[in-house]
Design a protein around this nucleic acid. Structure first.
Lengths: 232, 232
DNA sequence: CTTTCTCAAATTGTCGACAATCTTGGCACC
DNA sequence: GGTGCCAAGATTGTCGACAATTTGAGAAAG
């Protein structure tokens, strides 16, 4: 499994979904991220409990976890709403993301093994070829991008950083990308940026890798922000 | 309340504790952070539920929140343990903290009002005088330090960053500081560092402020790390 | 004596019902 | 006609009991 691409599902392989709360949590999270339930809409506990065929206490538990992921907001004795995707919040989230993934890059430059680095380079080449063949097919770009960032973060060897990025930030970022229709643009440019980053890591130049990653994420944010403004 | 010191309790004034889950959560969090329940120890749901005079479902809800704060770890069908404070985890947490508070400083330099900055400077002078009078009385240093960092983070005007630091990181950091006996050393040095940071912010020099804050936090980590090694 | 299997006790996960709180529509009063 | 209060409905918070899973002690086999 070392040099093979991972899909969104296989990105969390260690947490095998066993309990009912887990299943509802994963299912609801997907529904929110992909827009099956509208952003800003109120969540009715009895209704959703019935839809997922589960007790209300179980559903409430799942909602608590979604709140920890910043995907829903909750007020005592009032209820639960899906978060609203505002441009202001987009900027806030991406500022945090840039700082954390910049750190991840710097740590990766000093902690990744040569083998791990080689695997990422092979992965990039593989994705580049696939992308040339399936021009316009955006899924691979989306999955490939996630995969690249995933490996850098893992390569930092900082468990706490990993959890923070994946549990508290990444689903929210995916939500912005999916619902803004971030499918397949900026592909070749992003590939070049990825390449420059992994090269810096290969040269063990943590400072440069951090800077390149921050810039890469900044570009990505501008891209989404433009879509926002275009759609008003 | 603008130029007045805040205690640990008043740091979260907006979330007035109303529901039973909130009360148990706050109480249990305090007990864990201050070491009333030993790190690494297993948590028995029925026992704690009885002790706090609350249902098991309610207590489980509180445990979920503690898990989101990284204060307990949970495995399905197995149970819940208080986190173990290892030196490795200390380093991980402080690397993340430095990146996030560095960002907070940079943002604060561009977003804080002149009045907010003046209030922090007044606060530092006030704490310095108090510290001179009550030499050795460590609580004020602890509270003053928390207060300073709190205001910088608030001053970043980034809500997401604030939540991340305060909900997912700060209680864990307090846990390290309290249980390692971080009481009152490094006081005058920390004051000088705080002063340098707020001066950089006053000059709207975000880059310098970020660097100083990262260094300040790095020193703070080394201090705790030394205690660790001394205690083995 | 060590290892493995079994089974019972304890612990966790899930559920349906009850109590407390908030919302909303309508009525009285100004 | 507008404003404020009240009651009924709906929604959330909390509880105790039942089901599923894990664990650990003890017996039996090697």
């Amino acid at each position: 499994m070392s040099n093979q691409s991972v899909t969104n599902e296989s990105i969390e392989p260690q947490n095998q979904v066993t309990t009912a709360v887990d299943q509802v949590f994963v299912e609801l999270r997907r529904a929110i991220v992909e827009g099956d339930v509208a952003q800003g809409s109120k969540i009715s506990e009895p209704e959703l409990a019935k839809r997922y065929g589960v007790s209300r206490a179980t559903l409430r538990d799942a909602l608590n976890r979604l709140e920890a992921c910043n995907l829903v907001e909750r007020k005592a004795n009032v209820g639960c709403r899906v978060v609203a995707l505002t441009p202001e919040r987009l900027i806030e989230v991406y500022q945090v993301r840039a700082a954390l993934e910049g750190l991840a890059c710097r740590l990766a430059a000093q902690n990744m093994t040569d083998e791990e680095i080689a695997n990422i380079k092979a992965l990039l080449n593989k994705h580049l070829n696939e992308q040339r063949v399936k021009e316009g097919e955006s899924y691979y770009q989306e999955a490939g991008d996630l995969d690249f960032h995933y490996r850098i973060i893992k390569g930092s060897k900082n468990e706490h950083l990993f959890n923070l990025l994946y549990h508290d930030l990444y689903q929210l970022i995916r939500m912005y990308r999916v619902q803004m229709g971030m499918t397949g643009p900026r592909v070749s440019k992003a590939f070049d940026e990825h390449l420059a980053i992994i090269n810096a890591i290969e040269n063990r130049d943590g400072e440069l890798a951090e800077m390149l990653m921050k810039r890469h994420i900044s570009y990505s944010m501008n891209n989404i922000e433009n879509k926002f403004n275009a759609a008003q």
